[in-house]
Design a protein around this nucleic acid. Structure first.
Lengths: 242, 242
DNA sequence: GAAATAGTGTCTGTAAGACATTATATT
DNA sequence: AATATAATGTCTTACAGACACTATTTC
């Protein structure tokens, strides 16, 4: 039955829906937040009124590939041009969308906190930042987006332990104390200042950019990323003594 | 133009092809190899005669989700029931398949070396193991499979530095010297014996399973995995002194 | 000069890497 | 006994973590 005939089905085989969703993180008001959009309360679409990850169908006319599609979704919601964008994975199956077999390609983005002046023409009313730790474990989002969000947070927290990812959550130039702040916010625990600085500077990914005056007191050195295309991987993890 | 109307297109929007491919690794004859299938030499299908990753279209009738589909592809080619299987990522775009916009969900699998007694009914003639390091950098495989394979090898080698993944490449029970062999094969460099043993045993993922007689000389302790569902993550990396 | 934040110095324990040695089997 | 491989021991050194201290600004 499931022989080579099934593995090479005709070209007009039933095709699942193909979508792209984006998990957009930022640190706003000292907390890790994710951008969600509210689904229309009425109409024929599934999960009316529920919050969901920004995303939607791939448009074969305008999207040349998946990453371009993700970038488009992100731009439509945030007006951010060049964020950190990495693929998280894909989720697909028969039951995640009541309309039929569907598969979504999920990206996760890190952007610097921006005022809620979101996309111009877009209906910004149905877009909001949600604190990650305030969302419970129960599925509250549309589709399987709660599960996807959990995976994204896990990936982010995991990678923060040994990469320079948090630098993408800050507007440039930023100071080392600010960067440490962000690490602590994302990780949810304090980090030793001396070790932190040694590590960051040893990793060679920061370029000095002149002093920056803070709210008061001694000004700190400002830094920019030497390479905005990819994070740096540290040789060891941040974990404190067991 | 690209407003909310475009992000919620009608349900009969043009749907890309949805496929699943599997990168199947094993250590055969002391080398890291990948399983490839040869595309039919004649007919209307693209890339005739070229080698490709095993995979194909999602069958919405029999595949309940992506992972199930990947498992099916793997079973069809190798008869292996419960391998290590993890998602690698997805590749999609307008030009990777000449038949049209397509997206593939890629998994990578680790299986113990098995004789080339592959799937029974399957046409085993067009299936073969290829040494990973013998494949050049030029795209030689069908579709974008050369690029996908590169990503898979990179992921595997990367994770081997700090996880117990190579244990899934051996039939149980295996000995620590055998496991070290596999690490060295995948990493392509020698590893210190003493440190290796300390690390493996400290990670608590092995269960003793009685002595195993090798080809000659002193027999070694055999081990089985305490948990075959997931690898163990080591606190540090294998990297030698810089 | 008091206060607050930025930045540096010093000590110590842990554990990885390197290499030497002992243990246990086969022929 | 000789040999081959398994398993353990010892030494050294890098470096993260902890914490104390100094430096530089504002008010």
């Amino acid at each position: 039955m499931a022989s080579s005939a099934a593995s090479h089905p005709p070209i007009d085989f039933v095709r699942p829906y193909t979508t792209v969703d984006v998990v957009i993180f930022s640190v706003v008001d000292g907390a890790l937040k994710v951008l969600l959009v509210q689904r229309p309360a009425s109409g024929s679409e599934p999960f009316p009124g529920l919050w969901a990850l920004p995303g939607g169908f791939v448009d074969v006319a305008q999207d040349s590939d998946l990453q371009a599609c993700a970038n488009r979704k992100l731009r439509e919601k945030t007006n951010v041009a060049s964020p950190y964008l990495e693929q998280l994975g894909s989720w697909g199956g028969r039951s995640r969308d009541p309309r039929g077999w569907s598969a979504t390609h999920v990206y996760f983005a890190l952007i610097a906190a921006l005022p809620l002046t979101l996309a111009k023409g877009a209906n910004a009313a149905d877009v909001a930042w949600f604190e990650v730790d305030a969302l419970g474990d129960e599925p509250e989002l549309a589709f399987d987006h709660s599960e996807i969000l959990r995976a994204a947070v896990e990936r982010l927290r995991g990678k923060v332990e040994y990469t320079s990812l948090p630098a993408f959550l800050l507007p440039e130039p930023f100071t080392l104390p600010q960067l440490q702040q962000v690490y602590e916010t994302v990780l949810g625990r304090p980090v030793d200042k001396s070790g932190f600085r040694t590590r960051m500077l040893a990793a060679q990914f920061l370029r000095e950019a002149g002093h920056v005056e803070g709210p008061s007191n001694r000004p700190a050195m400002g830094y920019r990323l030497a390479d905005r295309s990819a994070p740096v991987i540290f040789p060891r993890t941040f974990s404190p003594r067991g």
